[in-house]
């Protein structure tokens, strides 16, 4: 069972649709017991960092998420990935879940590229990762974001090039993974990443 954590920061159904399509049992929940019981966790998210952290803190879910994320496979998607870091500078400074060392900053791509990055970009591998096994380097995945992680390459499995290197798939080397792109909107490559997450 994969618990998709519902803390009021949208787009849960796309993730659920993808998991259903792959035949991966899942539940959308904001219940701590369900999150503790689940075999795997996904933290989705669309919106602003501070607002999302407030929702996680106010509902008391932040502590549960922090504790459970290091016990079983955990995948943050888009904003859910950014929340894994220590802090963000989106509309003031906000503390994140602190599961991966680093911060989240407004993108400043070279070459006058537009922010947000919106569209299909290819993955450049940096470190071996179970989620990427069997997926050719250079595959395109779908991004929509204005802020990006700023962290050591030790935590980055794959980058995307958008006027500079943007961490695309990150992790703590243990159970915690984060995708800046939307695997649930990234065609076959994205489905394969989710399929492999179900095998972790």
């Amino acid at each position: 069972m994969i618990a998709i954590i519902d803390y009021g920061a949208g787009n849960l159904f796309s993730v659920r649709n993808a998991l259903n399509y792959l035949g991966l049992e899942n539940i959308i929940t904001s219940d701590k017991e369900e999150i503790i019981k689940a075999k795997r966790l996904i933290l989705p998210g669309v919106g602003a960092f501070g607002d999302a952290m407030d929702k996680l803190n106010n509902s008391g879910l932040a502590e549960t998420v922090k504790a459970e994320a290091v016990k079983k496979p955990f995948l943050g998607i888009c904003l859910g990935m950014q929340l894994l870091f220590e802090k963000s500078c989106e509309f003031g400074e906000h503390e994140g879940l602190g599961l991966i060392k680093g911060s989240v900053k407004l993108m400043k791509p070279e070459g006058n590229l537009a922010v947000p990055q919106m569209g299909w970009n290819s993955l450049e591998y940096n470190k071996e990762c179970f989620l990427l096994n069997g997926i050719d380097e250079g595959q395109y995945v779908y991004f929509v974001h204005s802020y990006a992680a700023d962290c050591s390459g030790d935590y980055v499995y794959a980058y995307a090039d958008y006027g500079g290197k943007v961490p695309a798939l990150v992790g703590n080397g243990g159970t915690v993974y984060g995708a800046q792109f939307h695997p649930e909107k990234s065609g076959e490559a994205g489905l394969e990443i989710l399929r492999r997450f179900g095998e972790l």
């Binding site: 159904f13 399509y21 649930e184 909107k185």
Partner: peptide
């Protein structure tokens, strides 16, 4: 469509 097609 959203149940079967995984692109924007």
């Amino acid at each position: 469509t959203a149940k079967r097609v995984f692109v924007p």
